[in-house]
Amino acid sequence: MVIRLLLADDEAMIRAGVRAILTTDPDIEVVAEAGDGREAIELALAHRPDVALLDIRMPRLDGLAAGAEIIRAVPTVGVAILTTFGDDAYVTRALDDGARGFLLKSGDPRELIAGVHAVAVGGAYLSPRIAARVIGELRAAGLSRVTTARDRIQALTQRERDVLALLAAGLSNAQIAHRLHLVEGTVKGHVSAILTRLELNNRVQAAIVAHEAGIITE
């Protein structure tokens, strides 16, 4: 499928550079561009893209607030944050608000394309540098977090644990359905149940719990 993408950044030169990278992939089409957060919301409502790729620091409304509003207004849009800033507070806020990707402008262009593809199919993607920091923090937290995570997943059925393990490995609902010989709607129901039972907001948070519990499936 062709991924329809909304790109928002207040710097025209940055937008041109990002667009040039994305359009090297024939499966990605930039359908709209915004120069501020308010415009990004308006264009998301008008175009209903598969992915909204948003800078953080923009006039009128920053990318984090714009992303949260887009998720509320058009839940089918996968939001990814693209920024120079990898501050932990930004990452936490974006993921808590439902963003499924957090990418650094200083990263490898291939990460940008991989992230867009992951978000477009319902998966999650963190820039490797950010992911490494998150994993480092989990390790620093020690055994208590591992024990807590393992206790939490006891509330899941075995099938839900299977789904969680594959979700944490980066598979989309369709890919999980194929792997487990289920229909995609059933997988969607399991994911919803997992988030509810574990009191989580999104797939990235679920993936972190799975990593902590040590149940990742390759």
Results as ranks from 00 to 15, higher is better:
residue 45 L to M: 14
residue 45 L to G: 03
residue 46 A to D: 14
residue 47 H to Q: 13
residue 48 R to I: 09
residue 48 R to M: 07
residue 49 P to R: 08
residue 56 I to H: 00
residue 57 R to F: 10
residue 58 M to Q: 09
residue 59 P to E: 09
residue 60 R to V: 14
residue 60 R to Y: 11
residue 61 L to F: 02
residue 62 D to Y: 03
residue 64 L to W: 01
residue 64 L to D: 01
residue 64 L to M: 05
residue 67 G to H: 05
residue 68 A to P: 11
residue 69 E to H: 07
residue 73 A to D: 05
residue 74 V to N: 03
residue 75 P to M: 08
residue 76 T to E: 14
residue 81 I to M: 01
residue 82 L to V: 04
residue 84 T to N: 11
residue 84 T to I: 13
residue 84 T to F: 13
residue 85 F to D: 15
residue 86 G to F: 04
residue 87 D to N: 12
residue 87 D to K: 00
residue 88 D to K: 13
residue 88 D to E: 14
residue 90 Y to N: 15
residue 90 Y to A: 01
residue 92 T to F: 10
residue 92 T to W: 10
residue 94 A to M: 01
residue 97 D to M: 08
residue 97 D to S: 13
residue 98 G to H: 03
residue 98 G to K: 06
residue 99 A to Q: 02
residue 100 R to T: 07
residue 102 F to V: 02
residue 103 L to E: 01
residue 105 K to L: 10
residue 105 K to S: 05
residue 108 D to P: 12
residue 109 P to H: 02
residue 111 E to R: 03
residue 116 V to M: 10
residue 116 V to F: 07
residue 117 H to T: 06
residue 118 A to D: 09
residue 119 V to R: 02
residue 119 V to M: 05
residue 120 A to F: 08
residue 123 G to D: 07
residue 123 G to A: 10
residue 123 G to W: 00
residue 124 A to G: 08
residue 126 L to N: 02
residue 128 P to M: 04
residue 128 P to S: 09
residue 128 P to T: 06
residue 130 I to E: 04
residue 132 A to S: 12
residue 133 R to C: 06
residue 134 V to G: 03
residue 136 G to C: 07
residue 138 L to H: 03
residue 141 A to W: 02
residue 142 G to E: 05
residue 144 S to G: 05
residue 145 R to K: 13
residue 147 T to E: 14
residue 149 A to T: 07
residue 150 R to C: 01
residue 154 Q to K: 15
residue 155 A to K: 14
residue 155 A to Y: 04
residue 156 L to S: 10
residue 158 Q to G: 09
